[in-house]
């Protein structure tokens, strides 16, 4: 699959996640095994009204989305993979007023489990805001209705 097709797929997938639309989360780039997703700054995700710093929960949502979506890049065929667990380390507060980016990789794919890593950053990719490792369970493509699979793949699996 070329990167353009991948980006179209992951964008369609994120487009079906209502809460991601609510927060304005969108895919920025996708390659095989690597995905970058953006969370724009907004008043809705502020955790400390005094400083305007984003709440950790919104960062968790960004990283869960990036990690759960990078499995689309890592698998030959589209399948929904529920999250088993996430472990998030918060290194520093995000700078208010600026978007946050999450870069996720699927570093090991087995027949049952996908292992992911993800880090979030702002202007400088070296200045990590938070880091996350996750595991996702494979339940097989058949567990997802064909109409939904076709919607995500745009029918380009056929």
């Amino acid at each position: 699959m070329n990167d353009e097709t991948l980006l179209a797929r992951v964008s369609r997938f994120i487009g079906t996640l209502r809460h991601c639309q609510h927060l304005g989360i969108r895919a920025v780039s996708a390659t095989e095994n690597e995905l970058v997703v953006e969370l724009p700054y907004s008043d809705a995700i502020v955790g400390n009204p005094e400083t305007g710093v984003i709440h950790g929960g919104a960062i968790t949502t960004l990283m869960d989305t990036a990690s759960g979506t990078v499995v689309i890049c890592a698998l030959p065929e589209f399948e929904l993979c529920p999250t088993l667990d996430l472990r998030v380390d918060y290194m520093r507060a995000a700078e208010p007023g600026h978007p946050v980016y999450a870069r996720a990789r699927a570093y090991r794919v087995t027949s049952n489990i996908i292992f992911t890593r993800c880090e979030t950053f702002q202007e400088d990719p070296e200045q990590t805001i938070a880091h996350c490792v996750g595991t996702f369970m494979r339940i097989g493509p058949e567990a997802t209705p064909k109409a939904y699979r076709d919607l995500i793949t745009g029918g380009d699996d056929e």
């Binding site: 996640l17 209502r18 809460h19 950790g56 949502t61 990283m63 989305t65 929904l80 999250t83 996430l86």
Partner: peptide, 19 residues
């Protein structure tokens, strides 16, 4: 509705549960 992720079940976005 605004907290949903998976539209098939439908289910709450995992990140919302985390938050």
């Amino acid at each position: 509705d605004d907290n949903l992720g998976n539209p098939i079940l439908p289910a709450i976005h995992g990140g919302v549960i985390g938050g």
